[in-house]
Amino acid sequence: MLGTLQRLGRWGLGVFERLGRGHLFLLQTIGCLGVIVMRPRLVIRELHSVGVLSLLIIVVSGTFVGMVLAYQGYITLVRFGAAEALGTAVALSLVRELGPVVTALLFAGRAGSALTAEIGLMKATEQLSGMEMMAVNPMQRVIAPRFWAAFLSMPLLAAIFSAVGVMGGYFVGVGLLGVDGGSYWSQMQASVDFHEDVMNGIIKSVAFGFVAAWIALFEGYDAVPTSEGVSRATTRTVVHTALAVLALDFILTGLMFQ
């Protein structure tokens, strides 16, 4: 009984300690973000590995999610004789929810895990330590550019996801199910509000980008420098990012709901 309590206590302390280290890491990272203005090229390199390489999975998933939304939405809407509102249904689901959230989940799997593994391995092979000894701050040289890249990529990827999703929905709704093409777009335009819907979606994806970058980089930086430690950290990145994104999505949606 006491043993269980002790273990529970130790676990709790461990969680708090990690949280504390995570926040310190974030503060340090934010302190280094400004350095990038002097060397934007570092970010471009990372934008390639974080953004460009995630593009394919985002485009493919976005298209298919949009097409499925069109099928499902059509079944429901046609019962009320409101098949013309298909464009609205697809666009609102994508722009408000699925775009930012699914992009963040895919991002965690594709780019977040890669970031964690890369930094964890740099730590395991003493590359970070080596930089320190060469009087180069790894927070500035390694962490800050990757943070920027992840943070900037997420809204762009989410926008691409939503845009190709809307086109996928058009393909299925108009091309296959025979919804009128003109009303697909016009109903969408009439009901989707730029500030209420599109902007809120962008705000969400910016927040998700911040959290995903933070978790992925911290897990890599904090990884136990062995191959097992790095693989555990990679798994944690994916799981924690997914949970954090879903929780944050709930909070943000609640705040934006009024």
Binding site: Q127, S129, E132, M133
Partner: peptide, 19 residues
């Protein structure tokens, strides 16, 4: 400290080359 480290070289066991 960084100014001091610029005058130190360190050779790590693994080499610690940037991969």
């Amino acid at each position: 400290l960084y100014r001091l480290r610029m005058r130190m070289g360190m050779l790590f066991q693994s080499g610690a080359l940037l991969t």
